[in-house]
Design a binder for these strands. Structure first.
Lengths: 141, 141
DNA sequence: CTTGTCCCTGTAGTATGGTACTGGGTCTAT
DNA sequence: ATAGACCCAGTACCATACTACAGGGACAAG
């Protein structure tokens, strides 16, 4: 299997080299093989996907700690399947809540965009209470 | 209308007093009225909802800067309705992408939880490639 | 009218998630 | 065999988002 240097991984994942090394230190990326002569890291191509997964999950509001937990759902050798299953279910519930919250926020913004017909200054716009409505729904629901 | 002290707002929103003052400094919360004698802040009850909105949006992965933009969709007097509408649409598109990503992640975890029947150690569990699949879908989709 | 709890401003410190720099060694193409 | 691009470890620095004082004044109950 062909391997990638740290710079190639960084470029393909659109992050800096330092970020890769940082993720390795933090245990989010497996320590790769090293070239015997130079000590250069040698990554398998799938390392790129791992980095992309981390970046995407970050945008979705997961901390590196949470992302680490997600990634460890597959490799922690001390845990049983039942453990993994429970953890997965917890994550699923968490994600469902996030989706529901985002939907409420989107609905509020949809109403906002629909009511506003592109005329006049903001002060006359009939949209101003929409985010308050979202806040209501979120607090009460 | 009855008012709340900063401590009452903080308690109801389950944050520290310092956080409220920090949000005020950062322009995320309007500067409240002050009691004439003491300079104590006097909040309207809806200030609590504002703080809760900020906390929820944060969990969903929005930065304070982004949250400020969301909140300013309703009060910025220099912008026209058309501006507001465009900004709202941009936010909506952003939120839709987040929802789609979260759904893919949830589906991967659903498959993972379903396949795993609660027996044996993780290494024998047929779930290990599910997060890889999510990564595939995310990269290719 | 004092005691304890709250609030004020201002400044300093912390955790997270990187980013940059220093002083090297390595690799590749000419 | 040497120039330019790459990599190494280690450390320092940065922005974001709080969090914790310090030193003082305000308020409410007994």
């Amino acid at each position: 299997m062909e391997t990638l240097t740290i710079g190639q991984v960084a470029k393909r994942a659109a992050v800096g080299i330092e970020t890769i090394r940082f993720y390795e230190r933090e245990g989010l990326i497996d320590e790769p093989q090293r070239r015997a002569s130079s000590g250069y890291r040698q990554y398998p191509p799938k390392a790129v996907r791992r980095v992309l997964f981390i970046r995407h999950a970050k945008v979705l509001g997961f901390t590196l700690k949470e992302i680490k937990e997600l990634l460890q759902l597959r490799v922690d050798p001390g845990s049983t399947c039942a453990d993994v299953r429970k953890q997965a279910k917890d994550k699923i519930a968490d994600i469902e809540q996030r989706i529901a919250s985002l939907k409420r926020m989107k609905d509020a913004l949809d109403r906002l965009a629909k009511k506003c017909r592109g005329r006049g200054p903001t002060a006359e716009c009939p949209i101003l209470e929409e985010l308050d409505r979202w806040e209501d729904a979120h607090v009460n629901g």
